[in-house]
Design a protein around this nucleic acid. Structure first.
Lengths: 233, 233
DNA sequence: GGCATGCTTCGGCGCCGGTCGAAGTGTTCT
DNA sequence: AGAACACTTCGACCGGCGCCGAAGCATGCC
């Protein structure tokens, strides 16, 4: 019997399948580490309850914990976990028969620009991928992506150490299906490099307590000049 | 609040998180369509119970149903769903702290060679990917893969219509992390093409009621001659 | 028509697991 | 030292869900 596989599958599913834990995981999906208390607040439960959930998630290897003074910081234990969660969201978004879309302000912002573990997603993420493709800097297919010689120059002068990124163990340029746009954006080391550089330049900023990304006025101008992207407010 | 995302996530997780449903999904992971009765048998439950589970999975869009006489055939509704399930299994295999491995005969066979939705996985799948890489037919990275000019010739003379496969909508050559080998094998249209051709040649056969693949004596010989693969019995 | 088969719906049972209050441990601040 | 804080453990409650028996529809075979 293939039960051993199914058991693993069910265990993971079960962990993600509780709304409270799903809220915690969603909160951690931007790659930051949060304290147990913050996670409890995110999920709207008492600290004791959060503690038991976090213990389970940690025991299963989805989360790693780091003690720091009297705080305990939790983060997703690897990009693999983030990728899994994204793939689950993609299934919701793509395959589910249409259902009520609350269309809240936050949802709108999330669709506009958000962090996806350590890179950019939403309209902005897709626009960046499009722009780099249009400029011949990267060749992005559904299967994967490569940076062209021209792209290396361009990204280099933009302040991204392409060679350094490519040396890392992790995927260099992975296409990541965007659950809101239903198109691909750039993930992997290059995706992180791009996001990091935009943060560094002050072109984008995180919105507190969410994955939403805000484009600053300088970013607005810079994106237009460098990538010919007209990002809405 | 990002609750809408978390809700979707939890819904999917909840569906996969029940051992019974996980067994059904695992049984469907090879891409075939099974009847409600067969799925009930796979999960070891009564038909009534299976019916309710299948209704839920279908309502959520994970499964599609097709009536055929008095049978109802269920299958995974898309490769996206299969990819999600695989990604969940990868997380179990890679991130989970080591746990008891029952080491049953079936597990051994599964690790040796199995179908993964519509392509090959296990030792055989990885060996094929290695062989094609070694022969310079494909260039497989963690990000994606491409078929070389030489590869097109080689695969063409092996009876695979590379150009035809590349024209399809779906990913052509996607690397898929193997949960047992923890290395990549070839998925996507090319992966399916390879598997189909090996079935057609009679080199491999499915084992009844499982995803296990058996290599025939002809296959043993053919794999050695064509790909220099010494596949264990 | 009569009967077997495949699947669904309904109703009630039983249990697993998420929840919080209370109490305990370890850390930091004054 | 004592108090405030962050988090964990324990115990009890209870709601939800997976389970099966019985009955109800469809379909196919004789």
């Amino acid at each position: 019997m293939t039960t051993v596989n199914a058991m693993n599958l069910a265990e993971i599913g079960n962990l993600v399948g509780d709304l409270t834990r799903a809220q915690m995981l969603t909160a951690l999906l931007d790659g930051r580490a949060l304290t147990a208390g913050e996670l409890a607040w995110c999920a709207g439960i008492m600290p004791q309850t959060a503690s038991s959930h976090l213990a389970k998630l940690q025991a299963a290897g989805l989360l790693t914990m780091e003690k720091q003074g009297r705080h305990r910081y939790f983060r997703l234990s690897s990009p693999t976990v983030a990728a899994m969660l994204e793939s689950m969201q993609v299934v919701c978004a793509v395959d589910a028969p249409r259902r009520i879309r609350p269309e809240s302000r936050m949802d709108k912002d999330m669709r506009m620009a958000r962090s996806c573990y350590d890179h950019l997603a939403g309209v902005l993420g897709v626009a960046l991928a499009d722009a780099l493709t249009r400029q011949g800097a990267v060749d992005l297919t559904a299967d994967g992506g490569v940076v062209t010689a021209q792209g290396r120059n361009m990204l280099g002068s933009f302040g991204i150490d392409v060679a350094g990124l490519a040396d890392q163990k992790r995927c260099f340029c992975r296409p990541c299906l965007d659950w809101s746009e239903r198109r691909h954006h750039i993930a992997g080391a290059l995706g992180k490099g791009l996001a990091d550089r935009l943060f560094q330049l002050g072109w984008i900023k995180r919105v507190r307590d969410s994955r939403v990304i805000r484009v600053t006025p300088e970013g607005q101008q810079g994106l237009k000049q460098t990538f010919a992207i007209d990002h809405p407010v």
